[in-house]
Design a protein around this nucleic acid. Structure first.
Length: 818
DNA sequence: AGCACGCCGACT
DNA sequence: GTCGGCGTGCTC
């Protein structure tokens, strides 16, 4: 009879141990160990016990080889399904990363060593227990809640797993997962009315001059209670007001634990809309094919109601008992988006995003794993939501580059979603106003089914876009950052009490600082990047490494005082707006103003209530915002993205213009968009002006074909980086020739003519690391072979002495080749 | 990554 | 003669 053996990925972050190790499963453990479980195994000469995850169990017939045995199971149920294991293995292959990196994504958030199994006793009659069982139940009952490892330690019995498992089968004991967090319980003051009297009875104790106090009481009466923070925010009451009420004994203050509840409890239901004929057709057609494992693209102009279609399809999924994953870009994972899903589906939704703590993320993960929710909404990584009955994945704003991960594994959420759908037989819906060139090409190839929504809800018109040639402004003596037209429009908008959004994709005040005498440009000492001036702190900052320095008054090189600030950022826009429109209330939204938790919400809140006249922002405000009173959008400089030396820069520009324009005219009034540019004749700008996606695509696809760029080829980038410039250059040359040698030896010469470099990367130094790049262009058929060689040259040898001190950054189809 | 082994110089 | 430096190599 053959023994069972398990392949285990060891939790040990070293490239040398990053491979499956085989362990025997003793007979007594046979029932307790399954694929996808964490186990403890003896490792190395000292047989120290470390953790690992079982990825495969198979019959072991070879009696000659002496294997070690798995020491213990750490889980009762697999924490990974077979599909998730397969997905991880696929990612390792596809994205040239380590096993551990790949598994890390599908595992519960946080450090998996910190996840512990908790045992609880069910409230059932405890008859016919063996002595051992009684001992365990007694122990758990006495402790209330206890960790599996503690129970095992207490029992000190070699069949501990079996005994506990039996108790589980008898439904006496059940287990849950818990993560140890360093985050302390958070206490906050919670305010509620102290009596149940009617509102008038309470109010009679307040003098009619206590306007704020009355307001607070009204608020509390309506809400039943609120955290002091929210109360003060919503009613604008001061702390004194609340204290006065407390002193009168009308309200009571309690310290309440703020629960790790990601979803605000006061989200009001999101009304169900009747679908327009256009939406309905899309909805019905997708629904007909929803079980056929297909891909769909909803190409709808901004404001055409894609979200409502998603929501109603999800309703159908729930009816069919299936789970849905909704992916949105991180920046549009705003309260607005979440409110729509939670408002419609309530506690059936789990939310995952980067602002959550590990503890919070873990709770959401568990809700999904345990089947407590049917919908998961989140950024890129939510594609790994551990549903067991996945029916649908929706990727909203499909074109967004944030769907490509910048960390290992450098996966594309689209590719992973497609793979998951194939494994689980689910469908994939992509939605966007500006499809990526790759996606639209797949539509034309018949791989993705297309739906077009041409009309905005209620037949609102798309805002009219005006292209302003800034060269002409200059010729006419206007050297301010506003064209005359934009200035006039802002002025008018203010007069009419409408809101304005000004967009500029650069934060800071000035983008570079230079000496007019000697021409010296101040660069970061650690990066090959000009420093950006930030006016509030009077500092120069490096946007790559974060280094800061006091803004110099004299040139660090020649000592002259002709220091000049060039290039505009959002801070300068803010300053200029305040200068020209002193009466307007202005707000700026960029990474510098939204670092604090909740600042997003506060800025949106003021915007929504109409307290902000002009909102200035970066990328952050280009997505998903829906403020009906915004009628004017000004794009300060459309050229920022256009001039980047990247093959995607035209596509980016078209997308950005279209998306930002979509923020205007969402309410009852028509919107206007002013685009300022030095390249008014560029086709991305011209096509964006007419909202002509097909026109843009036709032009762009020709260029891609002509110059051999995706989707006609794959791009593989290797960046060699390290602190020693010479070594980086030598290693990249070495790698390059090594790869060529291998290609000549084994494969096709054709691949070789598509290798570029090694060259210094566009930004040659970041955070004190020199960076050299090798680029490959390669067809789908050759990609596998190329990856194989790169794995051997760069990954398997990466601990080689000659590569000490340098690292490799390997990216397949990177979102940009900069 | 950890951990043991081993080969060398410096010390009671 | 032994202690500890770190360079090297292995982990089912």
């Amino acid at each position: 009879m053959g023994n069972l053996a398990a392949q285990v990925i060891i939790y040990n972050n070293s490239s040398k141990t990053d491979k499956p190790f085989t362990y025997l499963i003793e007979d007594r453990m046979k029932d307790n160990i399954q694929e996808g479980m964490r186990v403890a195994v003896p490792f190395g000469v000292g047989n120290r016990i470390i953790q690992g995850i079982v990825v495969r169990i198979f019959e072991w017939k070879d009696k000659t080889k002496n294997l070690k045995c798995i020491a213990d199971a750490l889980d009762f149920e697999p924490i990974l399904s077979k599909n998730m294991i397969e997905l991880s293995l696929w990612m390792r292959e596809n994205y040239l990363c380590s096993y551990l990196d790949a598994f890390h994504l599908v595992m519960p958030p946080g450090d998996f060593k910190e996840i512990r199994t908790v045992l609880n006793v069910n409230n059932v009659s405890l008859k016919n227990l063996t002595k051992e069982e009684e001992k365990i139940v007694g122990y758990i009952n006495q402790k209330g809640k206890c960790y599996l490892d503690d129970v095992k330690k207490f029992m000190d019995h070699e069949n501990a797993n079996k005994i506990i498992n039996n108790l589980k089968k008898k439904n006496i004991v059940y287990n849950t997962l818990e993560i140890e967090t360093k985050i302390n319980k958070k206490l906050e003051k919670y305010i509620s009315l102290s009596s149940n009297q009617s509102k008038d009875d309470i109010l009679k104790d307040i003098s009619s001059r206590g306007k704020k106090q009355i307001e607070v009481v009204n608020y509390l009466y309506k809400k039943k209670g609120a955290f002091i923070k929210n109360l003060m925010e919503d009613t604008k009451a001061s702390y004194q007001t609340i204290k006065a009420l407390a002193d009168k004994g009308l309200i009571k203050v309690t310290e309440t634990e703020v629960f790790r509840n990601v979803i605000k409890s006061d989200i009001s239901p999101y009304k169900r809309f009747k679908l327009t004929p256009e939406q309905l057709k899309c909805f019905n057609t997708i629904l007909d094919d929803i079980n056929k494992n297909g891909s769909f693209l909803i190409h709808g102009v901004t404001g055409s109601g894609k979200t409502e279609i998603y929501l109603q399809i999800i309703e159908e999924m729930i009816k069919a008992g299936k789970d849905t994953i909704v992916l949105v870009p991180e920046i549009s994972l705003t309260p607005q988006t979440i409110e729509r899903f939670v408002g419609r589906f309530g506690s059936n939704v789990a939310v995952l995003h980067s602002k959550l703590s590990y503890g919070e993320r873990f709770d959401e993960w568990r809700k999904i794993k345990e089947g407590k929710v049917k919908i998961a909404i989140g950024a890129r990584s939510a594609v790994f939501a551990p549903f067991n009955n996945l029916g649908l994945i929706i990727i909203d704003e499909e074109h967004e580059t944030s769907y490509k991960s910048g960390m290992n594994p450098k996966y594309s959420a689209y590719e992973v979603a497609r793979k998951r759908c194939d494994m689980e037989g689910s469908s994939l819906i992509l939605g966007t106003a500006t499809p990526s060139v790759e996606t639209y090409n797949s539509v034309l190839n018949g791989e993705i089914k297309l739906f077009v929504l041409k009309k905005r809800i209620n037949n609102k018109k798309m805002p009219v876009m005006d292209i302003i040639d800034m060269r002409e402004e200059l010729n006419n003596g206007n050297n301010s950052i506003f064209s005359r037209k934009l200035y006039k429009e802002i002025e008018e908008n203010l007069k009419e009490g409408k809101q304005t959004i000004l967009f500029l994709n650069r934060r800071g005040y000035s983008t570079f600082v230079s000496c007019r005498k000697c021409g010296y440009v101040i660069k970061c000492k650690s990066c090959d990047i000009t420093m950006t001036y930030h006016i509030q702190e009077n500092k120069l900052k490096c946007h790559y490494c974060g280094k800061e320095m006091i803004a110099p008054k004299i040139c660090p090189k020649c000592g002259s005082n002709y220091i000049k600030y060039f290039g505009i950022g959002t801070q300068k826009v803010e300053e200029q707006v305040k200068k020209y429109f002193p009466k307007a209330s202005v707000e700026r939204m960029d990474t510098d103003t939204v670092t604090k938790k909740g600042s997003h919400e506060r800025i949106f809140g003021r915007m929504k209530r109409g307290e902000t006249d002009i909102l200035i922002g970066t990328q952050m405000i280009s997505k998903g915002l829906d403020f009906p009173n915004v009628t004017l959008v000004g794009i300060i400089a459309a050229d920022t993205s256009l001039n980047l030396p990247d093959y995607r820069s035209s596509e980016r520009t078209f997308q950005l213009l279209t998306q930002v324009a979509g923020r205007a005219g969402r309410g009852d009034f028509e919107g206007r968009v002013i685009v300022q540019t030095y390249n008014p004749e560029h086709f991305s700008i011209q096509m964006a002006k007419d909202y002509n996606y097909e026109g843009f695509f036709d032009r762009e696809i020709l260029l891609r074909k002509e110059f051999e760029f995706p989707p006609f080829t794959n791009i593989l980038s290797i960046i060699v980086y390290g602190k020693e410039k010479e070594q980086v250059i030598n290693v990249s040359k070495d790698i390059h020739s090594e790869i060529i040698k291998n290609l000549e030896l084994i494969y096709d010469y054709n691949l070789i003519r598509n290798i570029y470099g090694p060259n210094p990367a566009l930004i040659e130094k970041i955070k004190d690391n020199y960076r050299w790049q090798i680029l490959f262009k390669c067809s789908d058929e050759d990609l596998f072979q190329l990856k194989d060689i790169i794995r051997r040259v760069c990954i398997n040898n990466r601990d080689d002495k000659k590569y000490r001190g340098v690292k490799f950054n390997i990216d397949i189809n990177p979102s940009s080749i900069l």
